[in-house]
Nucleic acid binder design. Structure first.
Lengths: 229, 229
DNA sequence: CGTGTAGTTGAGATGCGTCAATAGTTGTGG
DNA sequence: CCACAACTATTGACGCATCTCAACTACACG
């Protein structure tokens, strides 16, 4: 293989970067060489795989939203990440999935068989580079998430969350949230009550407006960014 | 290249896994093909690289302990991870380091030039697989860390931290901490006072003993694990 | 022996969690 | 179209875990 594998910024990554830059485009960026199965549909709240399941395949989101999470013994939940169209999730180095994955909304996913994909990655360095890039993207997000959870107030967490959602979904002022307050709370390490109260406070401050519970208009993006600095 | 690149569990990863399993062994697992420079020494608390620096190279810890962290505008700090001998840190897909890295104790590091490493990874799929494995290890740790920060009490955080440190340093009952209380606090998203109080409480409960501030004896590992469940 | 840094401990303040009641939203069936 | 149930979200009152501020102790180093 050529030098384009892992760390190259100049080439090998470009196709992947393009895929990320256009999350709305459902065009699969992995070749259709038999490693990907037919798309699969999941109803909202259904389980895609559970913690401990064999990690036979990983997925690319075609449409809808997916969450990966862990459950604690007391039944509480920590959501690790949300994935929207274009995102890839579920690859592992070990034999098992360390997190479970669930459909937040109805969604369509392309499954990739792991064994087949290894073969393909072995033959095509662009595929290998893409996979590495997806893994690094996940790593970057996980690190950002740690920072957010460790040292920020509820208001800062929510400001960051809203901006993240706005950025990912084409950046408009209006953000339609696919997830419930409970999902948001479990992602940010808060309770639904605190999420709700904080959003209400943002609305009172004129920073956002809430036409409906799941629709948020960012009225003052500057204020949100400042909170988040 | 062969099929051993990215996701193979059976081969390609074995050398890397061995390297992780024996963090104490300073034998570099990357070939000495001119991509690694001569080892570099860093005094305790010195900066290895800063957030925003060009990500020209990444490092492998030969001896000592390293922390990667981010600083907030108010001067507070979130430590993303600690790295001990055998660990690799600092690789990026972007042009810049997103976190800064500092020596917790005096330490010795092997630097790897990124450009040179890409070339090598291009020629040798085992090298590429190792790099992928290191990235995935980082990802797994970052995800575990998020879980820890999001939904756990101070006691649970510290129990988890102590067990993690014990596991990484040959697993004995006695753990010598290289880091200050401030480091621990910034890693766990707590204050030094809470760290100190919680450790004192553990000692009163007979779960640990503290022969000195930096030395911890795990007297009841079961109790720690139970807290952590 | 004095000085500086790291760590411990205490008292009080507060942000977020908990519990509980209320309101809004969605879907179903009459 | 309305009634009802089930679920989701909001709001309030109160408690508690952790933070903040401050004093004190322990240890290292000149």
């Amino acid at each position: 293989m050529s030098a384009s594998l892992a760390l190259s910024v100049d080439h090998g990554f470009t196709a992947v970067q393009a895929a990320f830059a256009r999350p709305g485009s459902a065009t699969p960026s992995f070749p259709q060489s038999g490693v990907n199965g037919p798309v699969r549909h999941f109803a909202a709240d259904s389980e895609i795989y559970a913690e401990g399941d064999d990690a036979n395949c990983f997925f690319k989101v075609v449409s809808g939203v997916v969450r990966t999470c862990k459950f604690l013994s007391d039944g509480r939940r920590q959501i690790d990440a949300f994935y929207v169209s274009g995102d890839v999730f579920g690859f592992e180095t070990g034999a098992e999935h360390r997190l479970s994955a669930e459909a937040v909304s109805d969604c369509v996913l392309t499954p990739y068989r792991r064994r087949g994909f290894e073969m393909l990655a072995g033959r095509d360095d662009r595929v290998a580079g893409q996979l590495f890039s997806y893994a690094m993207r996940c790593l970057e997000r996980a690190q950002e998430h740690s920072l957010l959870l460790g040292r920020r107030s509820a208001a800062q967490k929510l400001a960051n969350f809203l901006l993240e959602m706005a950025d990912r979904r084409s950046g408009g002022k209006v953000v339609d949230l696919a997830m419930t307050r409970q999902d948001i709370a479990d992602y940010l390490g808060l309770t639904i009550e605190t999420v709700s109260r904080t959003l209400s406070q943002f609305e009172r401050d004129g920073v956002i407006s809430l036409p409906s519970a799941r629709r948020v208009c960012l009225e003052n993006q500057g204020a949100l960014r400042q909170l988040n600095s």
